[in-house]
Amino acid sequence: MKTILENNELENEAIYIIREVAAQFEKPVLLFSGGKDSITLVRLAQKAFYPATIPFPLLHVDTGHNFPETIEFRDRLVEELGLELIVRNVQDNIDSGKVKEESGKYASRNMLQTETLLDAIEEFGFDACIGGARRDEEKARAKERIFSVRDDFGQWDEKNQRPEVFDTLNGKIDLGQNVRVFPISNWTELDVWSYIEKEGIEIPSIYFAHKRPVFERDGLIWSAHDEYVYREEDEIVLEKIVRFRTVGDMSCTAAVESNAFTIRDVVQEIRNSRISERGARIDDKRSEAAMEKRKQQGYF
């Protein structure tokens, strides 16, 4: 037995929130992308319920354009922890004609995830979706509550949010509504990386420096993957040592040149970085209000 339990305020807060979700909702789900934030959520959920297992499933909305390393990692994690994984594919909605795939230079399936997510919420009747979004990522996310109520259409009414006082979480909703829950709202990118290092949490290899065929466009480094990412003829493929700071769809996630081969290197790199994490998200560059618009429509 150890003597004194030292406090990690952010960790305690996240565990408290996850426990509230399990207690206040009938069908919660954890949205799992295979990225570092959702992997961190899985660890926090393990801690919240130990020695019991995590009492809700994981949902992965698969764009079909994911990094294969992420998918392999996902399947291994689920197997090791004995978790239930639900996968819903954006491809299905494209095939059925429900959504139309973008084409051309900046085509991305990122926006199409929203429709698949809303379908899955309806299919399973999920009343709470736990996500790894953080307030430090982006200006519109800075205004999110911990429990963020969405209407029947998954929409966010940012001007009419419930007040959240102290650490009391009001999870009461009407039939058809659901709540998006953000347990690591108050964490920064550096907090997440420091936690991953301290806890020795395993993460997909693409977060570390590796050699990859890439091309440059608009000052960003894009993955050269002709099947998923559109490339002009004059955009030449080069091999570079890169890593990814954020992991989304391959068509909307830019790489950064990096020599961070270990988790310690990564923490050091983030500490010294002069570019924000979402600076490498091509989807955010579309307009100043890009994220807010997507959130109103039901995006995470």
Binding site: K2, I4, L5, N7, N12, I15, R19, A23, Y50
Partner: peptide
């Protein structure tokens, strides 16, 4: 016992999200 994840502790400070067990079988709910 005071559990934090898979470790047991003698003392936990305020602010800690822990799991406590009691010596007696009592009826406790949320």
């Amino acid at each position: 016992e005071i559990y934090f994840f898979d470790e047991k502790y003698e003392t936990a400070k305020r602010g800690s999200s822990v799991t406590i067990t009691l010596e007696d079988d009592v009826n406790v709910s949320r």
